[in-house]
Amino acid sequence: MADIQHSDALLVKKYVDGDENALTVLINRHQSKIFGFIYSKISDRDISDDIFQDTFIKVIRTLKSKSYNEEGKFLPWVMRIAHNLIIDHYRKNKKMPMFRETEEFSIFSIMSDDSLTIENKIIQNQVEIDLRKLIEELPADQKEVLVMRMYQDMSFKEISEITGVSINTALGRMRYALMNMRKVIDKHQIILTN
């Protein structure tokens, strides 16, 4: 037993002095005990893996910053780090709000599906088709700016560079395009809502 502890201490010293292989040996030697300890408290492989990883990240950072001073007690020290992280895990989870379905309270009152229904999808498609038709009716220069801005997500600077006009002109064309479209929508009383 004393031999193993001595070896751990030696490996820790080697690792602190820059021997990366020493860490491989230390992890291989103790991974089963440490992981088993974490799993015995958590009972979830993935979370246990995360805590195991966080434990060794702390170990590595402490050793590399040369703040470790418990030579010969490597395993209990690592176990203590793991233990603290397990407590942190449970504290964090306790803070998570928990909702139970009761007669007065339906879980679906706070959960909603944001995706569109089939009916709303059809309406949205129709609105997009109508909008496209309106855009097609615009004068070419206004249509060009509007399509670049709204459908190709280009900035007015990029639009001005591509079309060879100033930013102000591009902005003006966009403004007229929107005004013209509103006029047509009002005139024909087109409803563009979902």
Binding site: L23, Q31, S32, F35, Y39, Q53
Partner: peptide, 13 residues
Amino acid sequence: KMEPKKETISFLL
């Protein structure tokens, strides 16, 4: 034998 994933060990090293 309980052991962490190989990827975890590899990440740590």
